[in-house]
Design a protein around this nucleic acid. Structure first.
Length: 438
RNA sequence: GCGGAUGUAGCUCAGUUGGUUAGAGCGCUGGAUUGUGGCUCCGGAGGCCGUGGGUUCAAAUCCCAUCAUUCGCCCCA
């Protein structure tokens, strides 16, 4: 039987060029969040299944999680998200950690589902969380960090928008204002979550079906439809505007505006799927016409740490997936041309392998990344290999060069060729390497 | 889990109403050119036509199944 060369369904192979891109994305994320003072942590990819039974809807456990039995008969899952894990870690050291905590991680996560654009079975996700701050300043900070990451990739505010809403507000609207019971509220919330994927009439009909005849007679259904059309906080009915969550949303929007985040907007239709959010939620949307979709989001989830039997710790965080981020960067043409690791490709001419060792070692000792072609092929073949690898410089070492201690170095982009000493060559290489690091 | 589309060379794809030995471009490789890439010219390798069954004198082509890829739904980071 012939073995397949395809990677497992929904998972990706990272060839060097792919890995280079991933390194670029992760490094950029790390650089930004560390600038905000976040510390990196990590944890096992396996967790006991109980971790996911306690929270966040059953769907994810029963249908979208990798579950298997270990040799000891324990049910084990491959983590589908990092939030429960990090909550567990915080709970374990609840009393000894220096709050507020600023933690981040870039875990590998798995979900058992049908792969499609922007959604694979395996992905990596930057998780950024603040623990121990029951204040909007935490929300403001993580949103700023998220915004700063996108800017670090070269994105501008016209490319995405940041939508904000409040779970507390929605709870009040659904139950207090519209008078729905818990089940109805849940159904309406799920429906609102899908609102933009269906025609307005379908939405209205499905919403209507959730209300009781009495509620419909009282106009609750029409009230809901009216509310969902409102784009500005100021246009909400007075009764709603007086709710405490409104002042918080306004305050957060004002803070973000001060921080020069001009593309943050209130969006009453923003729900987000997880049930564990307790207050502010936010989501970043790609505004590219062909990829108009949610990229990533987060919010406040004050209840998770407490599930581990310790006093609750207020928490705000977000998760940014690598697949959707990459789609975003590609769509807006923000991916840079990444350079290979090697600075220079050494072309050996003639039988100089032994004598060239000294020079090559010298280059490496001075900090150059040097790949050497040991194939004994003719120079043109060796040069072609260097070009194909995308290496910027080719260096020629032959009998003549070794004798003179002057080596030919060619810029493979411009074709310009010069003869220099090793130290001069290394400084040329380093100048080029630093060029793009502004 | 449900529905649609697509599987032919490493890649992108042709392939007539079913009819001999399955094609092109790019790429790969050797040479022209034994110390120098990109252009040009000449040669070469590379295919179980996704896989398994069926119909037929005859299948890349028609039918069924299956697997994979992909788009959407469900769900959701």
């Amino acid at each position: 039987m012939k073995l397949s060369t395809q990677p497992y369904k929904g998972a990706r192979d990272f060839y060097p060029e792919d890995k280079r891109l991933q390194k670029y994305m992760f490094n950029t994320m790390r650089k930004v969040v560390e600038r905000y003072g976040y510390e990196e942590y990590d944890a096992p990819i396996l967790e006991p299944i109980e971790m996911y039974l306690a929270k966040s809807g059953e769907e994810i456990v029963h249908e979208q999680t990798y579950v298997f039995e270990d040799r000891g008969g324990r049910a084990v899952t491959i983590r589908p998200e990092m939030t429960p894990t990090v909550s567990r870690m915080v709970a374990a050291k609840r009393q000894e950690l220096p709050y507020p905590l600023r933690w981040y991680s870039i875990p590998n996560l798995w979900r058992y589902e049908r792969p499609q654009r922007g959604r694979l079975r395996e992905h990596w996700q930057l998780n950024v969380d603040v623990f121990g701050l029951a204040d909007l300043r935490a929300e403001a900070e993580v949103i700023q960090a998220a915004d700063a990451i996108l800017k670090a990739f070269g994105a501008t505010h016209d490319m995405y928008s940041i939508k904000l809403n409040s779970r507390k507000l929605m709870d009040y609207i659904l139950h207090g204002y519209l008078g729905l019971n818990e089940t109805q509220g849940h159904m309406v919330a799920k429906l609102i979550d899908r609102m933009h994927k269906m025609p307005a009439e379908t939405f209205a009909a499905e919403a209507d079906a959730i209300f009781t005849p009495t509620q419909r007679d009282e106009g609750a259904s029409n009230k809901l439809l009216g509310l969902l059309k409102i784009k500005q906080i100021e246009h909400l009915p007075t009764a709603i505007r007086e709710h405490e969550s409104i002042a918080e949303l306004q305050k957060l929007l004002a803070t973000l505006k001060e921080a020069r985040i001009s593309n943050a907007v209130f969006d009453i239709t923003l729900m987000r799927g997880f049930d564990y959010y307790t207050d502010i939620v936010f989501e970043v949307f790609d505004k590219h016409p062909e990829n108009n979709r949610s990229m990533f989001g987060g919010g406040r989830y004050d209840g998770l740490v407490g599930l581990f039997g310790v006093d609750p710790v207020p928490t705000v965080g977000f998760g940014m997936g690598d697949v959707t981020l990459q789609n975003f960067l590609e769509g807006h043409d923000l991916l840079p041309k990444l350079r290979p690791e090697a600075d220079v490709y050494v072309v050996l001419i003639g039988d100089v392998y032994e004598q060239a060792q000294k020079v090559i070692t010298e280059l490496r000792d001075m900090g150059a990344n040097v790949a050497v072609d040991y194939s004994d092929r003719k120079p043109d073949k060796q040069i072609k290999a260097a070009v194909k690898k995308g290496i910027h410089y080719a260096m020629f070492i032959g009998a003549k060069e070794i004798k003179d201690e002057q080596y030919e170095i060619r810029n493979l982009i411009t074709g310009v060729e010069e003869r220099h000493s090793t130290s001069r060559i290394v400084s040329i290489i380093k100048d080029y390497r630093d060029e793009d690091l502004e």
